[in-house]
Design a protein around this nucleic acid. Sequence first.
DNA 1: ACCGTAAGTCAACAGGTGATGACATTTTAA
DNA 2: TTAAAATGTCATCACCTGTTGACTTACGGT
Lengths: 190, 190
Amino acid sequence: MKCKQTIRRRDASATKAAILGAARTLFAGASYETVGIREIAALAGADAALVSRYFGSKEELFHEVLRDGKRGADLLGTEMEGLPERVAAILMDPEDEGKSMEDILIFLHSANSPLAGEMVRDSIMERFHGPFSEAIGGENAMERAKLFGAMLLGISISEQISGAIAETPEMREKLTVRIAEILAKVIEPL
Amino acid sequence: MKCKQTIRRRDASATKAAILGAARTLFAGASYETVGIREIAALAGADAALVSRYFGSKEELFHEVLRDGKRGADLLGTEMEGLPERVAAILMDPEDEGKSMEDILIFLHSANSPLAGEMVRDSIMERFHGPFSEAIGGENAMERAKLFGAMLLGISISEQISGAIAETPEMREKLTVRIAEILAKVIEPL
DNA sequence: ACCGTAAGTCAACAGGTGATGACATTTTAA
DNA sequence: TTAAAATGTCATCACCTGTTGACTTACGGT
């Protein structure tokens, strides 16, 4: 009697979504080569064979994860007024745990992968640096956008690695203000 | 007639050093699992078997690479006067190509590895955040040191991924000043 | 010059990877 | 109800990984 506990009813699109979500989560935590198909399938509660079946290959699955991500502008908003404060608040939100910055973490972990690297670098340009430098506008917008991205990246990955920088709520508040100031300085025209 | 071009004379300590150097270079560019022993050996101009033989295992080799790295304080100096300017100059130096920040890149790429992650996180604390927060001193030194590290990390990895932010020498100069200002603000007491 | 030992090479291993095709089961439609 | 289509499972493949042992080659002391 073979009977594996199937949580959800047979539903191709639902399992496909579950796999995509699991892949997103895992790729945010480690590089393209480190994350295995079986691992993704396990987290999604599906069979490993379905990953290849539904997405064609691991590489295409990863591509789909990238396509599925939010654009930087969607996350941060295009309204420049109060942007540093908004972003700082997201970065320091203890509930968030880097979920808002998931795309950035995915970028980071696989940007140097021999197989997925080029894909990632294109995606960074198209989905982040591009729209964001447009939102900033003015002279040297791209340079300032890249610097801004570098800050987000640094803080996000640092928190993922070493845990939250701020431990107490008061410290968090102070740091939020500080980071907002820094980000404002980053965007400031050169 | 088996005759492989042996560049250097037979010298165990020299090959060991070559392997260590190659490993350092490659681990700065990709994660612990992504970099293969055969790849390391090829770059070092040695046989793959020697890697395991001389270092015991890939894990121990990686450990050695970490131990071999400079301490953050060595690289940046403990003299606080003019530190932001100095660091900014290193970050924007087009000749450097992230070589000074190699340790940081190594940290970054393998910090989330299931096998090497813990090792790396310990190393970050011991070799970077620790001495650096001591050098900064004052209240909330650790928090400011972590934020400082996050900036270095973000800029280094961003440059490695997308190439240099500044393309012209003038732009580079402007950005160096800007980054120095930012770093100064980061260190500033909370 | 020779021989022992250090240094390097090669082939093979066990285990893990992504991928695939045959099979089993559930769902849907007639 | 029953057959066909859709969905999920399993066993297996070829390849790649880190590691090891047996082998060959080169060096240095006598």
